[in-house]
C-alpha cells in the first residue's frame, strides 16, 4: 500500500469556491425564530449544538447511520447531521427541548421514563423525536411494526424492549 496519503484524492483540490461561503438564515426552532450567520458548511446538527447551544440533539456518527441527531423538520423526522442548515431557511425545527410544555412532559417522554426506554440517555433524544414522528405516521400497529419503524435509531445500550413498550403506550394514549 501507499507509503503516504499525499497523492490520494486531493490532487485535484479545487480552487476557492465561487461566491460567499457564509449565509444568514432564519430557523424557527421550537417555535422561536432564530437568526444565524453560518458557514455554508454548517450542518443543521452543528447549528443546533454549536451555535444555538441546543445540545439535546446528539451527534453519534455524523454519517446518517445512527439516528441520534433526529429532529423534526417541518414535522418530519430527519437526520440533522446529513443536511445543511442553510437549506432550511425559514423552516420549523422541533428538537427534544421543544416537546415538554413547561413542567408537563410530552406523553412520549413520560412513556420513555415509565418503560425505562433508555440507559445512558445518549440515543434518547433521537429515539423520542423519532417516536413522536413514528406515532404521527401511524406506524405503531404492532410491536413488530414499531420495531421496524424505530430501526433508524440505534441504541447501543440495548434499551429496545423499553423503547417499543414506550412507543406502544404513547401511541395508545395519543
Amino acid at each position: 500500500m501507499a507509503a503516504g496519503s499525499a497523492a490520494l484524492g486531493v490532487a485535484d483540490l479545487p480552487t476557492d469556491a465561487a461566491g460567499p461561503q457564509t449565509a444568514e438564515i432564519e430557523l424557527i426552532v421550537n417555535g422561536r425564530s432564530r437568526r444565524l450567520e453560518l458557514d455554508t458548511r454548517t450542518s443543521l446538527l452543528d447549528a443546533l449544538r454549536e451555535h444555538l447551544q441546543l445540545t439535546g440533539t446528539k451527534k453519534g456518527c455524523n454519517q446518517g447511520a445512527c439516528g441520534a441527531c433526529t429532529v423534526l423538520l417541518d414535522g418530519r423526522r430527519v437526520n440533522s447531521c446529513l443536511t445543511l442548515a442553510l437549506m432550511h431557511d425559514g423552516a420549523h425545527i422541533t428538537t427534544v427541548e421543544g416537546l415538554a410544555r413547561g413542567d408537563a412532559l410530552h406523553p412520549v417522554q413520560a412513556a420513555f421514563i415509565e418503560h425505562d426506554g433508555f440507559q445512558c440517555g445518549y440515543c434518547t433524544p433521537g429515539q423520542i423525536m423519532s417516536a413522536v414522528a413514528c406515532i404521527a405516521e401511524g406506524h405503531t400497529g404492532s410491536d413488530d411494526e414499531i420495531r421496524a419503524w424505530m430501526s433508524g435509531n440505534i441504541c447501543r445500550c440495548g434499551a429496545y424492549p423499553g423503547i417499543v413498550a414506550a412507543v406502544a403506550q404513547a401511541a395508545r394514549a395519543g
Binding site: 483540490l13 469556491a17 455524523n62 454519517q63
Partner: peptide
Amino acid sequence: IAGGTTLVDLMREEVERPRRLIDIN
C-alpha cells in the same frame, strides 16, 4: 443537492468537493 444524504456525507469526508451547491429542492 437534493436530500443531501449522499452528498453531504461524502463532502464531510472530502471525497466530494463541490465548489458550489445548487439546492434544487
